[in-house]
Design a protein around this nucleic acid. Structure first.
Length: 174
DNA sequence: TAGGCCATCTGGTCCT
DNA sequence: AGGACCAGATGGCCTA
């Protein structure tokens, strides 16, 4: 916050005539009311904006795999999970495409070695406020698994069960 | 009780 | 000028 409420400075010297003082007082009151109304409207818009944002997050939660204990993901967890979930689905599609193009070469197994999945390497799908950017060479999520704020059960379930293993089982990789 | 998460308010900044 | 977006502040609620 700052100080944006600077009212127009008063004059220096003798006070203005009575009519001017009264008129000025009225206009100040009017300005105050206008500002107050503007602020209330802005608050209302901001509230609606945040509600829309939360609705979008709820929609995102609804398309993500549910946890067995019906734990509601926090906002940050939802975003991170969605990010890794998209990555896992992309990997699944990529592996499927590779298998289709070369079904006898078992490229998936080779690919698993050089495409670290969040569930297979030392990292997981949540946390990572201090993680490096995933936009470097590898598109895989780089969030590390040592987030004390994330429930361990959620971490374990999130990708290992719902995404990686399930997907790899589905396509016969394992 | 401390810490995490959340909703809300608020002022600043940018855009139309 | 007004609206959208953003970040900081604040207080409430919940849980370990």
């Amino acid at each position: 916050g700052g100080c944006g409420e600077g009212e127009g400075g008063g004059g220096v010297g003798s006070p203005p005539p009575r009519w001017r003082r009264r008129g000025r007082a009225r206009s100040e009151a009017a300005v105050h009311v206008v500002k107050k109304n503007r602020r209330m409207k802005a608050n209302d818009r901001e509230r609606n904006r945040m509600h829309n944002l939360n609705d979008a997050l709820d929609t995102l939660r609804s398309v993500l795999p549910a946890f067995p204990d019906d734990t509601k993901l926090t906002k940050i967890e939802t975003l991170r999970f969605a990010h890794n979930y998209i990555w896992a689905l992309s990997e699944t599609i990529r592996l499927a495409d590779q298998r289709q193009s070369a079904p006898l070469a078992l490229p998936g197994l080779a690919r698993l070695a050089d495409a670290p999945s969040p569930g297979s390497d030392a990292c997981s799908w949540m946390s990572g406020a201090s993680s490096s950017s995933p936009s470097s060479a590898s598109p895989s999520p780089s969030y590390c698994c040592s987030n004390p704020s994330s429930p361990a059960s959620s971490e374990d379930y999130g990708l290992v069960h719902s995404d990686s293993l399930y997907s790899f089982h589905t396509f016969g990789i394992f």
